[in-house]
């Protein structure tokens, strides 16, 4: 974001640009997000259409990975049932930090049409894993998912990096104290 614009105004005659380390890291992270190739329900078909010729997801720098350990973000595309919920949690835990989650479609957001009588449907995937971007729709159009992807990139661009480990460690300490 804006990093490449600085090429037109280089520091000290050329060759050097000045910027924050956060900018460079976030720029790299947001422009090459790899996702976990993983479909759940109806939304997965729109997700496949997104990968295909008309919408071309790869222009966002998104490449499908079949292993959660290589993936940067996961798209929860469809209804999450209780039988599946534990697997999704495991998949999320297997992903390496930093990791992001896009919740695609009404079912993953809040249970969708199954909110009332769906005894086997988890009413919202945010009950088990943290979600960064919610995409509404049943199913969302691929354009809506594109917008969701752009929002995720904006979010990554704004994130703080410094002292994050320190802060996380402090939080862990606090949790330990509480739990003990």
């Amino acid at each position: 974001m804006g990093l490449l614009n600085k090429l037109d105004d280089p520091y000290y005659g050329g060759g050097i640009i000045l910027g924050k380390v956060e900018d460079i890291l976030n720029w790299g992270r947001s422009k090459s997000d790899w996702y976990l190739q993983f479909g759940l329900a109806c939304c997965a078909i729109e997700f496949m259409a997104m990968n295909a010729s008309h919408f071309d997801f790869m222009r966002f720098g998104c490449i499908p990975r079949t292993s959660p350990r290589q993936a940067d973000f996961i798209i929860i595309s469809g209804t999450v049932t209780f039988k599946m919920a534990e697997r999704i949690k495991t998949l999320y835990e297997q992903m390496a930090e930093p990791k992001y989650v896009i919740s695609m479609g009404s079912c993953a957001n809040s249970g969708g049409p199954y909110w009332e009588h769906g005894y086997h449907v988890l009413k919202g995937v945010d009950r088990i894993i943290p979600v960064d971007v919610y995409v509404p729709g049943c199913p969302p159009r691929p354009e809506a998912l594109e917008e969701g992807m752009i929002r995720l990139q904006e979010k990554i661009n704004k994130q703080a990096i410094f002292n994050k480990r320190k802060r996380l460690a402090e939080e862990e300490q606090k949790e330990l104290i509480i739990s003990n």
Partner: peptide, 19 residues
């Protein structure tokens, strides 16, 4: 579940069932 007198459980493996 498909019996007419079935009542939804409140919790399954620590996850809340009702909305």
């Amino acid at each position: 579940p498909l019996r007419k007198d079935y009542v939804q459980p409140d919790e399954y493996h620590g996850m809340k069932v009702p909305y």
